[in-house]
Amino acid sequence: MKRLLLLFLSMMKIGLFTFGGGYAMIPLLENEFVSKRGWIGDEEFFDMVAVAESTPGPIAVNMATYVGYRVGGVVGAILGTVGIVVPSFAVIFLISLVFRRFIAVAWVAAAFRGIRIAVVFLIFSAAWRLFKRLPKKPFPLTVFSLVTAAATVLSLLAVRFSSVWFILIGVGLGLAAYLFALLPRNRRGEGDK
């Protein structure tokens, strides 16, 4: 019981003090639950990060659910997730109440015209960071170039084609490439582990 309360409070603390989302949270979670409390082993923590990165959803939430489950089962998972979400929910909700009036002020509107440029820059740099981690092999690079071109052109033509479809196409292509490599006549070409 005390452990669950501690879990909830730790998650709230981490949720309140990390700016910049998921990746900023990983060292804090590590410090709190691996180094300080020893509730989770080192190696297991790295596995958790890998799973959190490879499943859908925000990495921070995935980590909180996983850590919570390991500490206190399903109840722990719920407490961990709620704990990490509550602080940002409260902060953003309060901001959203006043935001429209705030942005109507002339100098604030001018500031946000500058800030939008910074946001576009941040999105570019996120794309660059993720791109550097892609394996530089023909298959991922081809998929990457085709989807970038298709998504940009469709958007400029004002054709509505949800990004969800592109992701599902990615799922299909990944599976197709895998099955293709399994075909008997390609078996010899299957070098990767």
Partner: peptide
């Protein structure tokens, strides 16, 4: 295999949005 197909799509979508 699924992830190997999804990852490049995700990067492409973010880049295209930025563009």
């Amino acid at each position: 295999a699924v992830l190997s197909g999804v990852r490049p799509v995700v990067v492409a979508l973010i880049l295209s949005t930025a563009l």
